[in-house]
């Protein structure tokens, strides 16, 4: 049956990268996460603001580990996070009485919107989810969550990606801006 046959897969994994690539992925993500977490822990700690959210770890995989990926480009990184944050906050504010519904609407609607705007960025789904399940610290930010940490954090990570990913001869970033 075609339906079951499709579950077997039809292709294979792409080849693994070489060690130089691994090293630069490590360096980029170390510096990118270091930048946002330094701001988070050293500057914003006393203010009640946050700079780092879990979805940045996922963004780091893409923008430092798969720099050619369409999903890792600036349009997707910034656009995906910002749009998803808006959806996430909105979903929580409308359905805070039903957290399961707010959570699922936040993620699914974010994916749909990212598709429609050509900004698909997988960590965006986490950004939307965190707006719902992130606890009081996140909820109290309201729509500020869209700007800080989401937009600002993503922008800092983007800056590090631009600086680091263009150092090696065989790497370049981005593939496109808009």
């Amino acid at each position: 049956m075609d339906y079951l046959r499709k579950m077997k897969g039809s292709s294979q994994s792409p080849p693994s990268v070489n060690l130089v690539e691994v090293l630069w992925s490590w360096i980029g993500s170390f510096l990118g996460i270091a930048a946002v977490s330094l701001i988070h822990f050293k500057i914003l700690d006393q203010t009640g603001l946050i700079m780092i959210i879990g979805s940045f770890g996922a963004s780091a995989v893409l923008i430092y580990g798969a720099v050619r990926s369409p999903l890792a480009q600036p349009r997707n990184l910034i656009g995906g996070h910002v749009l998803s944050a808006i959806i996430g906050v909105t979903a929580f504010q409308l359905f805070s009485q039903q957290p399961w519904l707010a959570a699922s609407l936040a993620v699914s609607t974010s994916i749909a919107l990212m598709h429609l705007t050509k900004t698909l960025h997988p960590p965006g789904g986490a950004t939307a989810l965190i707006a719902v399940i992130g606890g009081d610290g996140v909820h109290s930010l309201g729509y500020l969550y869209v700007l800080i940490p989401t937009a600002l954090g993503a922008t800092v990570m983007l800056l590090i990606a631009l600086l680091v990913n263009n150092i090696p001869k065989n790497r370049r970033y981005p593939e496109f801006w808009l």
Binding site: S10, S13, V17, V20, E21, A66, V67, R171
Partner: peptide, 23 residues
């Protein structure tokens, strides 16, 4: 797909497409 994998190896960096899709 073997040709594609060889070519992908020659390009440094992770390319997130399966050889089948590329083909």
């Amino acid at each position: 797909e073997q040709d594609i994998i060889k070519a992908m190896k020659a390009i440094q960096g992770y390319i997130d497409i399966t050889p089948g899709d590329f083909r």
